[in-house]
Design a protein around this nucleic acid. Structure first.
Lengths: 215, 215
DNA sequence: TACGCTATGTATAAAGT
DNA sequence: TACTTTATACATAGCGT
């Protein structure tokens, strides 16, 4: 029963086209009626098809006439303003999708950097093929991580000090990062810290969430 | 993020109504454009809302004019034929839902009988509050089960006979029903078999599938 | 041919930003 | 207020009858 993803183009098969028409026309009329009810707006729809000699309309021939009449009395120039025609519709859509693509590209880049960083911590980093920008961004990312680590280490130090009076409290220190990882961060950052361009810190997404859907 | 089931009525909250309007208008236009593309039909939609001084249309003011012009030239009487107005739409829907309700009621009844039968096999059946019809249907159901059982018992007898030559084959006889269950079926059916009305066998649904959705 | 079924795609109500 | 995200409701493609 595997359903295809619906190619947005004229359906060549006659039977399928008619079946689709019937289903979608029904759905469309339902949507129109819902919009009208929920938002209290005047809507009309007219559908010409080869399956009916007369057009199918919503809400009723009389209702359509009333709405259409209003429409016709407007000067054509006025009508062109703020209208949703196909061109505008598509342009808006393209704009939105471009925006999303931009965002996703950025996220992918951030993820890639994270992967590079975390995936190579215990060994040597493979920095072949990275551009200067890549390296700079990577350094920014490392800096961010370093800051977190330092903060955390201070906290641990404080907690440990406080805990000295009670021997059992030692167990409460959460081993968030092991020493090797911390050492690796520190080392890596030291190497690149001094020859990186400034002003790029803070824009990297350190969260590694998954986000693939494009709507 | 729990989404409510959408009450089909005017939305009182101004902000919600506007938000819903924007979303649904967008969705509607998309649907209209898809129907047009997929099925190659002429469609137009006009939406008047308090959020725009001018109506929003599809596919374009000019396109709407063209389609509307066609519509206006038809005699009103002809237009009323085969049209999808609100009343017809609702009546069709009511008819469909009634059909479904009927079917579901029947299914529920069948399930109920099955439950009654299987739920009381090892003890005494509680037959209080059952109508004559209930009892008759129950008897039909039992008869069906009995037939299956007899058939199965014959098979088993045959298999056992065949298996006598090989002692190890005895393990292959599948214990589909235990003796108590079989005895209960036989007993129950015997009790009611002789005072039931005839002519109702065969229409009971012995499958116990779940089906709750109503569309 | 039209209708019912159900797995799957799509629209969208709420909540978050 | 408008845009984004997420969980859910809803629409419907491909089958089977």
């Amino acid at each position: 029963m595997t359903r295809k993803k619906v190619k947005l183009a004229y359906i060549n098969n006659d039977a399928s086209r008619k079946a689709t028409y019937k289903k979608r026309k029904k759905g469309l009329i339902k949507k129109v009626s819902e919009l009208s009810t929920l938002c209290g707006v005047d809507v009309c729809a007219i559908i010409y098809s080869p399956y009916n000699t007369q057009p199918e309309v919503y809400p009723s021939p009389r209702g359509v006439h009333r709405i259409v009449k209003n429409f016709k009395t407007m000067p054509e120039i006025e009508q062109s303003k703020k209208m949703m025609n196909q061109e505008v519709f598509l342009k808006q859509k393209i704009g939105k999708v471009s925006e999303q693509m931009k965002r996703l590209k950025k996220e992918n880049r951030d993820k890639e950097l994270n992967r590079l960083l975390y995936g190579n911590l215990s060994g040597k980093m493979n920095l072949q093929g990275l551009t200067v920008t890549d390296l700079n961004d990577l350094t920014s990312l490392i800096d961010l991580n370093l800051k977190d680590i330092n903060k955390r280490m201070e906290e641990i130090a404080k907690e440990t000090k406080n805990a000295r009076t009670a021997a059992s409290a030692a167990a409460k220190v959460p081993p968030l990062m092991n020493r090797e990882v911390i050492a690796a961060f520190a080392t890596t950052s030291t190497v690149y810290k001094n020859d990186r361009a400034r002003g790029m810190s803070g824009h990297l997404n350190t969260k590694n969430q998954t986000k693939e859907r494009i709507r």
